[in-house]
Design a protein around this nucleic acid. Structure first.
Length: 509
RNA sequence: GGCCCGUUCGUCUAGCUGGUUAGGACGCAAGAUUUUCAUUCUUGAAAUCAGGGGUUCGAAUCCCCUACGGGCUACCA
């Protein structure tokens, strides 16, 4: 193991939007690279033409950008090992596949889908332990082992479809070291003769991945746990290609599990349970279905990254709020958890709240203004800032400054029926009229002056504060939430305050 | 079915070289503040460390077995 320059890659395939588990894999690669002064590469693994989804690649790049996960080599920006899109590297793979055939580590196979299906059925019926194309079965199939050499040559020259399969040893212990799981051993008899090169001229993941990681001088392969079972094949491929001394180190990350039930977090869990699973919104062009994103839901990118970082990793201290710089400083693979991490949407909200707290009201307002303008709400920066100051403690998401604070921008249209039933009685209208009369006289319409004057009046008339305050809140807000009622009045101003009392009187009688 | 990986409060986790009242955070509960709702503060409940065997004076920490969970098992990645 030489002291190689650290080079890692994130290699998604553009089959749809990248979900948060994928972003976390990218993040861990990024943190590891930054921490060790290495390179972080973005490679697009688009070897499956059938599953290619238009827009997915752009989506991936935009997502990473939103998260501030920057790559310094790869698709879009190029680099010394370009191209970084596997479909554009097509020519490279075939020679390595053929090299494996020549060295006896791979072979041509001509079986049809139907023949493969029959083989599987037969093996299942026999209750064979290994029901795949492997050392035990390959001699019964149509391939360059069973066909005469001349026939193999003829078939290939005549353009007959073929695949190249790896010659998996019959019975060999394959052991490799994983940075997170230590030693992993598998017997090759349980593995199969994986297709390395497809009949459409494209490599499969296994070949492309190994070839590219070698050519791109990748030092560490950090990927999801779903790849652990095929890692022995990859190790064998490095050996077969004579690259054993340059083989990267492996680290298989634990999976992200769904908050409820069983299994790994999937595409549809988010909208089913009310939280996003995607970094940014994705619209499925085929079905028109929209999948919500963290960005659109009002999460700060820093909070999102923070949440992901702490899923399956921790710094070993009690600090939970960590900036990207701190994450880079503290990150290490040996603090990565082995078991899958169940995602908790509630804690995700808490993280966002912490990031909200860290911002000044001025900063929040600046972030808010474009949203306000887009909604054509006619208020100025200073007004919004007052709203922010008033409700920031009770706000988790940026959009809540708008939707949960509608009463700052317009008179309530509806009044909470339960509250009306409880707090609005026969004396209320008269009471509100009198209070409105008091307020009308006020020059100084600040919360403190309002409070003093209104309370003085109530006291001198022997009226309990409770019924007045609740009725006022009903008139101003329409429901039982929001900051101090006098502060709301100060912000919306005298004119609006009186209008709302009038509105309530007209509507509630 | 086969193979691989895993298993500390409901959840994320600390605990890494055996000796702690098993710590923190989210959530939950109670109280205080707020004549609303939140915030904030205080307090509390919550893991016999999956279970069972060992090793040891002593194990959440080491070993084995079982159970359970997860992943993989395509000419998908």
């Amino acid at each position: 193991m030489s002291e190689k320059h650290i080079r890692v890659r994130f290699a998604p395939s553009p089959t749809g939007p990248l979900h948060m588990g994928g972003v976390r894999t990218a993040l861990f690669n990024y943190l590891f690279a930054k921490k060790n002064g290495g390179d972080f590469i973005l490679r697009i693994e688009d070897t499956d033409q059938n599953r290619y989804v238009t827009g997915a690649e752009e989506y991936i790049i935009e997502s990473l950008k939103w998260c501030s996960i920057e790559f310094n080599e790869g698709v879009g920006i190029g680099g010394p090992h370009a191209p970084y899109r596997q479909s554009e590297r097509k020519e490279i793979y075939r020679q390595y596949a053929e090299r494996l055939v020549i060295s006896g580590n791979a072979y041509y196979a001509f079986d049809t889908a139907e023949e493969l299906e029959n083989m599987r059925k037969k093996l299942e019926a026999e209750k064979a332990h290994n029901t795949s194309y492997c050392a035990a079965t390959r001699m019964t199939m149509r391939n360059s082992f069973t066909l005469p050499q001349t026939e193999t040559q003829t078939l290939i020259r005549s353009g007959h479809p073929f695949v190249i399969r790896f010659t998996m040893p019959a019975d060999k212990e394959v052991t490799f070291h994983d940075l997170i799981r230590q030693s992993v051993t598998v017997n090759s008899s349980t593995l199969d003769d994986k297709v390395l090169f497809k009949s459409d001229g494209m490599p499969t993941y296994h070949l492309a991945n190994v070839v590219d990681d070698y050519l791109m001088k990748i030092s560490h392969v950090i990927r999801g746990e779903e790849w652990l079972p095929s890692a022995p094949l990859h190790v064998l491929l490095y050996k077969a290609l004579g690259w054993e001394s340059d083989m990267p180190q492996f680290a298989h990350l634990p999976l992200l599990l769904k908050p409820d039930g069983k299994g790994k977090l999937s595409k549809r869990d988010g909208d089913r349970l009310g939280f996003p699973v995607f970094p940014i919104q994705w619209k499925d062009t085929a079905t028109g279905e929209i999948f919500s994103g963290y960005r659109e839901s009002g999460y700060f990118p820093g909070a999102f990254v923070n949440i992901l970082a702490l899923l399956g990793w921790n710094p070993g201290t009690e600090q939970e709020i960590l900036s990207m710089d701190e994450l880079v400083q503290l990150f290490s693979l040996d603090k990565v958890q082995k078991a899958g991490a169940r995602f908790d949407p509630e804690k995700a909200k808490w993280f966002n709240q912490q990031y909200m707290k860290a911002l000044s009201s001025e900063e929040i307002t600046t972030l808010l203004m474009p949203m306000i303008e887009e909604l054509k709400i006619n208020v100025c920066h200073d007004y919004v800032k007052k709203v922010v100051d008033a409700i920031r403690d009770r706000t988790v998401f940026l959009k809540d400054f708008i939707y949960n604070a509608r009463y700052f921008y317009s008179s309530p249209e509806e009044y909470d029926a339960q509250l009306v039933a409880k707090k609005w009685n026969s004396v209320t209208p008269g009471l509100l009229k009198s209070i409105a009369g008091v307020m009308e006289q006020l020059e100084d319409f600040t919360a403190s002056n309002l409070e003093t004057k209104v309370k003085e009046w109530l006291e001198s008339n022997g009226i309990g504060a409770g019924q007045a305050m609740n009725a006022l809140r009903l008139a101003m807000v329409g429901s039982n939430n929001g900051p101090g009622i006098f502060l709301i009045m100060e912000i919306i101003g005298k004119e609006e305050t009186l209008i709302r009392i009038e509105n309530a009187l007209n509507r509630l009688m």
